[in-house]
Simulated assay, not measured.
Amino acid sequence: MDQIRKEDYHSLDEETLFIVSQTFKALSDPTRIRILHLLFEKECSVTEISDCLELKQSNVSHQLRFLKNLRLVKYRREGKTIYYSHDDEHVMKTLQQTIHHALHE
């Protein structure tokens, strides 16, 4: 295997490192994984997420805010109801591959 030379290596800037670490932080929480997995399947309101995953609405709202700040979920308003869906295909593919890896024997 070839050694990489220092002058050929392009390190990551601090902002990129921060975003990557925050994304992995988001994916390290079981509740956020469950929410993202559900939103990969379908768009949902907070009530639907809460009911489907048997979580308190306040917990769901808190986790969605965290995910929205990282641009992992997006939302749209329909009347008084807000619907959430996933917002980053790259992260969702990573999550799906990780789930597939965990299920592989």
Rank of each mutant, 00 (worst) to 15 (best):
L27Q: 05
L64D: 07
L70W: 08
F66G: 00
F18L: 13
L64R: 02
D29Q: 12
K42N: 07
R65V: 04
N69C: 00
K74L: 12
V46I: 13
K56E: 15
Q22C: 05
T23S: 09
L72I: 06
L27N: 07
H62W: 10
R65T: 08
N59F: 09
T16Q: 06
T47P: 01
L64G: 02
H62N: 15
S61M: 02
S58I: 10
K56I: 08
D13L: 07
K25D: 14
E54Q: 14
F66K: 05
D29L: 13
R71V: 06
H37L: 10
S28N: 15
E15G: 14
K42P: 07
L55I: 06
D13I: 11
R34N: 10
I35G: 00
T31H: 04
S50R: 05
S21I: 13
R65F: 05
N69L: 09
L55K: 06
Q22N: 03
L38I: 11
T47W: 06
R34T: 13
S45Q: 06
D51C: 11
P30R: 07
E48P: 03
T47K: 09
K56T: 12
F18K: 12
E15H: 15
P30C: 12
Y75D: 11
G79A: 07
R71W: 00
L36N: 01
E14T: 14
D51Q: 14
S28R: 13
V20W: 10
H37N: 11
A26H: 02
L67W: 11
F40P: 08
R32I: 02
E78D: 15
L55A: 04
E41W: 13
G79V: 07
R32H: 00
E41S: 12
S45P: 02
V73A: 03
T23A: 05
R71P: 01
N59I: 11
I33M: 10
S21T: 15
S61P: 01
E43P: 02
F40T: 07
E14L: 14
V20P: 03
E43Q: 13
E43A: 06
L27D: 10
T47N: 02
T31F: 07
V46A: 08
L39E: 04
G79D: 00
R32Q: 02
K68I: 01
D51W: 05
T23Y: 01
T23N: 07
T23V: 09
Q63M: 06
P30I: 14
T23M: 09
L53P: 06
L39H: 04
R32Y: 02
K42F: 04
S58F: 12
L70E: 06
E15Q: 15
S61I: 02
L39N: 07
F66D: 11
T31I: 09
R77V: 13
T47A: 02
R34V: 02
V20I: 15
I49V: 10
T31Q: 11
K74N: 15
Y75L: 07
L64F: 06
I49K: 04
Q57E: 15
L70D: 05
